[in-house]
Design a protein around this nucleic acid. Structure first.
Lengths: 193, 193
DNA sequence: TCTATTTTTGACTATTCAGTCCATTATCAA
DNA sequence: TTGATAATGGACTGAATAGTCAAAAATAGA
């Protein structure tokens, strides 16, 4: 080895993820990436491969950081009702900012799901993970007798996953925060029966 | 007036809608459109304006035909439980084909929702319409005593809308039909208690 | 200090794209 | 039949694109 990279590879990936998250894949040019990462083009190609490679790594990074951040408590041992409430609170709060970016995975499904099987699979994994997190927390609820009998965690997890995706698509469509909040309340109402 | 158009303007719009639905906006080039519509470029520009204009008209056409086709029974007077079941049956069946296209509106939200307010608004209108259709049918259910008391149609409509969007995003992610069916069953299970 | 290796930089290329121009063709109204 | 008008097809354009190349700069190890 001789000369080390003059930048933080992971930090730059975070910035790429941010840009793709906001603008989408095709609307983000290599020139945009150069500017936002503060890197020369060749450095980007050397480090991450081509544009699609960088995007796919951004999807992985998205799973590793923002998704884990939001889902962490749902996926933990001992997760329960409070964590589900917390999840939707955070979700709505995050999508109620000035220019909500919705979800990189959901956006990617809409833009590239129709033609890139690799993107498809990553989104599918994300959806399964969402479902798994809810199911874990719901089984915690059941153990703690926080859940009305007769509600199947696996089924309820589908309903909560759908509620989440619904909110994210609505956010991308510019739906107003009060409506997003109502959608979240409708999701949480599922737990009260 | 002198020379009439040598093609069916609406039929060509249907074909453009099909193409955008399958491939997305940016992945569809004017050359693709020429080939698929069987028209010269100038005819397309003369008739529909620019590419974005054609896309926006495709969104409107999508609302007018496929959406109306699928939602018609939910929006009709006298809609009820059977129509909600029918809706999800059709939805899943349609997305279980060899290469499901999911939903033009949802796809468009993911691809263009982040930067085009016109697209945003059209998607938001579509979401409201979906909610309205469910709410109409649910109120029919309530009148017919098909709905357990304590279920608010407006809230339940949010849950069913989310279930629908969830299935559409999953379809775009290539999720297998059996899972789509389970997601639909989870949606319908909302009506059973 | 010297050398091998890598990063960086910026210019370059070939392609693709949306959109335009214009000559030609076809139709309606008179 | 004729003149006005509109539609059509194809070539063209300028801009933007992803990706490449090669020279220069910088660093670790000897």
């Amino acid at each position: 080895m001789s000369r080390p990279k003059g930048f933080d590879v992971t930090a730059a990936l975070d910035r790429a993820m941010d840009l793709f998250w906001r603008q989408g894949y095709q609307a983000t040019s290599m020139a945009d990436l150069e500017a936002h990462l503060g890197l020369g083009r060749q450095s980007i190609y050397d480090t991450y491969g081509d544009k699609l490679g960088l995007f796919l790594q951004s999807l992985d990074r998205y799973s590793a950081v923002p998704v884990t951040h939001l889902l962490g408590r749902l996926e933990a041992i001992g997760a329960g009702l409070a964590d589900i409430h917390h999840f939707f609170d955070r979700l709505v709060a995050y999508q109620s900012g000035p220019s909500p970016r919705a979800c990189l995975m959901v956006n990617a499904a809409g833009e590239l799901g129709g033609r890139d099987p690799v993107v498809q699979r990553k989104v599918a994994v994300y959806l399964r993970r969402l479902h798994g997190g809810f199911q874990n927390a719901l089984e915690g609820c059941r153990s703690a007798r926080q859940l009305p009998s007769g509600l199947e965690p696996a089924v309820l997890a589908h309903q909560l996953t759908a509620a989440t995706i619904g909110i994210l698509v609505a956010a991308r469509a510019g739906v107003a925060p009060p409506t997003l909040r109502r959608m979240a309340q409708a999701g949480l109402a599922l737990l009260n029966r």
